[in-house]
Amino acid sequence: MYTLERSPAVHRTVVSDRREPVPGIVILGLHVPHLASITLPGQFAMVVPPSGEQAATALGIYEAEGERVSLMLVVVGPRTRELAALQIGAPLDLLAPLGNGFELDALGDNVALIAGGVGIASLLLPAQALAARGARLTLLYGARTAAALVDADRFAALGAKVVLATDDGTRGHAGFVTELLRALPKHAFSGLAACGPSPMLRAVGRAAAYLDIPAQLALEETFACGVGACWGCVVPHAASSVGTPVGLIRAKRAEPPARESDRFCYARICKEGPVFWAHELRW
């Protein structure tokens, strides 16, 4: 039987197009022959710095089609600044595709995508896959300010109902995007898929538990290796569904564990994740 070769590799790419939809956010299109077809929604790349002088950067794979993938960068520090300055024709090497993507089939046919800031970058591929199988989509998208909201129309074009929020109230709901979940009745969606900063994802997890909706969260924490080698990127996890690579252990906060739910191990976000079931995290 023919199986698709999905194992990650070093991919040599060339910047094919570059877009700066708003100042400080850059979308880099990359020409790369054999990556788009093996990339699953929610997977990421470790981007090798062209200067060779800093650590590689973890970036979600924003678009993937044919011989092109793209990355969306928010300039926050030296590494993202270096990448954002790349021009068309520049070579760029990626380790990709990495991590586990979303289990979209487990989210049902009425899915809310919840994006915080640059978390939007990891949700377009899931939106496309869900739309392709006819799921009803809602995008709840929050950012600091109106000027930091990017490409919401791409989701609308897939048929998603788009609800916006900004911290400063310059567009949509004034406040955190997760506040939009509070007004919902139980089981308002068949599933949630979220990506954004950890405090936001924690809030999504709490809301999902209250609303009794299964939720998958794509975490973005500091990575070093990005390939599961250094154990630096961990999150407390119930351990029920993670594998048993070297060092993954079961332990408890208190001895003996008061309840089964107190048991956890530290799972690697880059390897066992970055997408986790919200109810399995112990954070």
Binding site: A55, E221, F223, A224, C230, W231, C233, V234, V235
Partner: peptide, 18 residues
């Protein structure tokens, strides 16, 4: 060994603190 609580990594100028 369970290991230390997160965060376990911080990038610093030209370095990595773990």
């Amino acid at each position: 060994r369970l290991g230390n609580a997160a965060p376990r990594l911080v990038s610093t100028p030209s370095g990595l603190l773990n």
